[in-house]
Design a protein around this nucleic acid. Structure first.
Length: 186
DNA sequence: TGTATTTGACCACG
DNA sequence: CGTGGTCAAATACA
């Protein structure tokens, strides 16, 4: 497991992956807003499966799992995204659990983006993409914003045990800072 | 119509 | 008992 702190400068677009207010039945569907900004995007495709208000935090934590976790042989990768309110430029903490075994997103990202930095889970290029998977639906990253994400080391353990890899990443349109450190999570 | 996302509820752990 | 994490049904968008 490692964590990536994404700092978004005020002048940049909001890094929020998506805003989506849903109106329940009976209510007027007036305030439906959808934004998809994949500034956090690391080249992989994530599916949100939960959101939780965290005690002591003004912002909820979002739970994502690899979109290929179900249909590509069981990619165990998961990601937690939480915004830190302690920073004037919004700081987003991306916590990764387990390694990707699919590598689909990275392949797609490399093909679609030139200058994007991909989070290296250690599986990029280590496994060929499935030739029979012609589903481009989940790999339409080319129309998204380039992810300002720095490359970090992969977690050595493929299981769900936190590997303790923490990377602080501050990104802007001008510069990218990345620092990482290991935590002994044994 | 199909797929992705939202949100509340349930379960497990400390 | 409280908090965090995951599941499943409902809803919205393409």
């Amino acid at each position: 497991m490692y964590t990536v702190h994404v700092e978004q400068r005020p002048t940049s677009q909001p890094p929020l992956c998506f805003f989506r207010t849903r109106t329940t039945s009976g209510e007027t569907a007036a305030a439906t807003r959808v934004e998809r900004k994949q500034n956090w995007d690391d080249g992989f495709v994530w599916t949100k499966y939960g959101q939780k208000d965290i005690r002591g935090s003004n912002h909820p934590r979002h739970y994502f799992r690899c979109a290929y976790t179900l249909d590509a042989g069981g990619c165990p990768a998961r990601r937690q995204v939480q915004r830190s309110e302690e920073h004037d430029p919004p700081l987003y903490v991306l916590t990764y659990f387990a390694d990707h075994t699919c590598c689909h997103g990275a392949e797609a990202a490399f093909a679609a983006l030139d200058d994007v930095k991909i989070l290296d889970f250690g599986c990029v290029g280590s496994r060929s993409p499935r030739p029979d998977d012609g589903d481009a639906r989940k790999t339409s990253l080319s129309e998204e914003l380039p992810a300002e994400v720095a490359k970090v080391e992969s977690t050595p353990l493929p299981d769900m045990r936190p590997a303790g890899k923490v990377a602080e990443l501050s990104s802007s349109t001008d510069e990218i800072h990345c620092s990482s450190s290991w935590e002994s999570a044994a």
